[in-house]
Design a protein around this nucleic acid. Structure first.
Lengths: 218, 218
DNA sequence: ACATAAAACGAACGGTCGTTCTATTATTGC
DNA sequence: GCAATAATAGAACGACCGTTCGTTTTATGT
């Protein structure tokens, strides 16, 4: 079924909204500026969402959708365990570039709404909890394959995983550090090495050479 | 010399502004709401800064000042090397609480302005660069004392240091995780352990028991 | 092709924004 | 205590905010 006209424009709006949110933040999304950017009238655009809060949530949902599209799903084609985990890392480091975004909308949303009660925060928390859970699951798989030690603290690893990404974004966007991704990759390697089961090869596979690290559908 | 009336109210304004910025962000600071919160008129408050941008920068400066007051300076009373580094960690993890802030204004500023050219971004970048430099210097000292291996990549360590903090704030504020600080402390220990010089004791000192970890002036 | 429904528009609303004036009130140095 | 000066207030500004409403245009199903 071809998407209706309404859905088409809605998608176009969200694309523009996401781009704006990734650099300026979700609170900086204004109906007026977004209408101008999409060549619509304020009221015409507004009708698609009913409120600004709904627009923000829809934009956040779109961010997650796109993220999964270019990061989570492709990584699933790598075999369970360390390889898939490394694919996740590599994809994650590239996802904003692949989606033609400058900043990471999720990181932005977190600092914007982590202490601001409301529907956006609720939606964000659910999304992030889900993301965290799936990451923990991937780590658990790597324990199950015997690559990580049996007593590995998966939650702790996920905690540090996220930190590496946050630091990477800071280096990239604030400091304009060209080596940010390399730094992050090195940090991942060190993190995973510290969890390695004894007797397993500690040397990580060459970055970028993992199956699933690049989107298989393009 | 007693501070003039002007300076007194300016300080009061900045205190309110900082509190607001730490939870709602720097862009969310509005002259009107801030005037109401301090019991002043909009124009009276405005006159202290001349523009909103100047107010934002002043608020950021105040954040750095307070940060150094409760984090950097107290840590200097710990002996150079790993002990001082650990004091920095402990103080950093507590600094928002000590300043009665919920979020970290610096983290907020980074995600808000890392891709938004302007005077605020410039000021922020300078501050963060300075902070990074002093951190790298502390790490270098720990190499010089022989506690960290000679081939330790100080910049890389600083990169990961920041990530741990970022992750900690997320767990604290978004997930309301009571164990966030413990997680962060564990991550610091792991990070430092991986840099330890061979033959040195790998077990870290008990957290919170370092000199300089608590402010000596109160 | 035509009736019906969906989508987009334009104008207007009450509010708040940052900022600019001028006037008034406090504070300061002598 | 009295000028000089700094600090604050008040009113107003144009611009933009999110939102509502009635109308007009456009797409859809038959």
């Amino acid at each position: 079924m071809r998407p209706s006209k309404g859905e088409e424009t809605r998608t176009a709006i969200l694309k523009a909204a996401l781009k704006h949110a990734s650099t300026e933040g979700f609170e900086a999304i204004t109906i007026g500026s977004l209408a101008e950017k999409t060549g619509m009238s304020k009221s015409g655009l507004f009708a698609h969402f009913g409120s600004k809060e709904e627009l923000q949530i829809a934009t956040l949902d779109e961010a997650i959708r796109r993220f999964n599209e270019v990061t989570t799903f492709p990584a699933l084609s790598a075999p369970r365990g360390l390889k898939r985990l490394n694919a996740m890392c590599d994809n994650w480091l590239l996802w904003t570039t692949r989606c033609e975004l400058t900043g990471c909308p999720m990181m932005t949303a977190i600092t914007e709404f982590d202490d601001k009660p409301g529907a956006v925060r609720d939606a964000l928390m659910q999304h992030m909890q889900r993301m965290q859970n799936s990451l923990v699951k991937s780590i658990q798989m790597t324990i199950d394959t015997g690559e990580f030690a049996a007593d590995t603290d998966a939650e702790q690893l996920a905690f540090e995983f996220f930190g590496i990404l946050a630091s990477c974004y800071r280096s990239r966007n604030l400091f304009r550090d060209e080596n940010a991704n390399a730094r992050a990759r090195k940090a991942f390697d060190r993190l995973f090495a510290s969890a390695m089961a004894p007797g397993k090869p500690a040397s990580p596979p060459a970055p970028g050479s993992n199956p699933g690290a690049t989107s298989p559908t393009r």
